[in-house]
Amino acid sequence: MAETAPNPTQRSKPKNVRSRLLLAQLLVILVVLPYLANLIGQPALTSLATRIIILAIAAASLNLIMGYAGLASFGHAAWYGIGAYVVGILYRHSVSGDPLFGLPLGADQLLITLPAAIIVAGLFAAVFGALALRTSGVQFIMITLAFAQMIFFFFVALKAYGGDDGLIIRRRNALPFLDTRDGLTFYWICLTVAVVWYAILSRIVGSRFGRVLEGIRQSERRMAAMGVRTYGYKLVACIISGMGAGLAGALMANHMRFVSPDMMHWTQSGEFMFMVILGGSGTLLGPAFGAAGLIGLESLLAAWTENWQVILGPLLVLAILFTRGGLSGLARMIRGGARG
């Protein structure tokens, strides 16, 4: 990974202007999109866009550790699923009134459930990240996959909360003054959350902390030699990343009004990785484009044939083999900028 990393000094100024322009364009598109969708008589597009925005939050979170710190986590769906389950379980208790851990917990307010999901996912990420970070490279990939699988099995066995069948959330979590049950309102909520999260990530990446992560990706040994305690930085990055995934999971639980262990299936982790890689890992907006690209492609293929994975699989293989850096790499190739 270190060899293919572009030199950060080379890409600072013009790139900055370009990415701001890109950001502005993207925001305009996202703001107009629901109205456009209604105009062309495809209101389902808004729901699809909501999904993409939520997944983009999770992908961006993964990008923090995978793209910037070079930690390829194959278990990100676990934090995503945990965030979703926090919403599901709190909702369940708010409806039934049963105590949770002996306390009268239970909530159906987004202002409570979102922070709760973020915190719980962060706690889990802290525990498992602390363990997984004892390894690196291939082992890290395998271990994050295995831990996520363990959490998956835990929720499959959790019969009290639906086990295999999952939990149905009859009503979306409420927000004061807003009707979250309205699809368009929920779209705006997700978009706002996403913008805030991307802004936070952008600050993190630009901070000294972010620089250290970038340094760790390029050469962890060199960072250690400079006196940086890399383990602590990586762990904090894992926790932040887990929190973001938990946030996305909580939103998705509200969006689908359904939570099940499937959300933390290992293929979901793989999809997050693809979103990051396809969009261009280690770039701020890359994961958003990756999420849009992958989900868009999936929806298109699924509309065309039920066996869409037969086509998607080889396409993804080709993307990995021939476009270094996914969509951005493809754009570079087309522009003739060659080389990854």
């Binding site: 693809f274 699989g313 993804l316 990995i320 083999l321």
Partner: peptide
């Protein structure tokens, strides 16, 4: 990992 993941989808 990602390329072989794509292969799994296909198979």
């Amino acid at each position: 990992v990602l390329a072989t993941f794509g292969l799994i989808l296909f198979f």
